[in-house]
């Protein structure tokens, strides 16, 4: 066979293969977007709002893991707001006043840890405040 004949039969095959591959990839992509693989992309968004004048520290611990390593640990300055994205799941959350010299003046609630379930694609708000952050209510 001559080279010309070989080339004439080779390139159509390449294009056919490319088309087939594209169709296959598109199918895979569609399946990836529509199927269970999409779930990891939907993060749980937590808006942490510091309504006080103290420096706060917040920590999220994944309940599914036993290691004492925080999945997220953030410090918030006075009157600061931060946006966190976390993998959906159950968490133990902690918060405390972290400023040196400030922690002595602030009593923490007896139950320091709380457990929350964060759903993917949902937005949560976590307000942080103290008794004297604002005016005393009219009791």
């Amino acid at each position: 066979m001559s080279c010309h004949k070989v080339a004439r039969s080779f390139w159509p095959s390449v294009w056919t293969g490319a088309f087939s591959g594209a169709v296959l990839a598109a199918g895979l992509c569609f399946a990836a977007c529509a199927g269970p693989a999409r779930a990891p992309l939907a993060a749980a968004v937590v808006m942490v709002e510091n309504h006080s004048g103290y420096l706060w520290q917040v920590e999220f611990f994944n309940r599914e893991t036993t290691a004492n390593v925080a999945a997220a640990s953030v410090q918030l300055g006075p009157r600061e707001r931060r946006r966190l994205a976390l993998a959906p799941g159950g968490y133990r959350v902690r918060s405390w006043v972290a400023g040196a010299g400030e922690a002595e003046r602030v009593s923490m609630p007896p139950r320091a840890d709380a457990e929350v379930d964060l759903g993917g694609g949902r937005t949560y708000v976590w307000p942080l405040g103290t008794l004297l952050s604002e005016e005393a209510p009219d009791l």
């Binding site: 003046r105 009593s107 609630p109 708000v125 976590w126 405040g129 103290t130 008794l131």
Partner: peptide, 12 residues
């Protein structure tokens, strides 16, 4: 003495 308020993340 100030007191930290017990709050948790909640969906609003």
């Amino acid at each position: 003495r100030d007191v930290a308020l017990a709050t948790v993340p909640s969906e609003v």
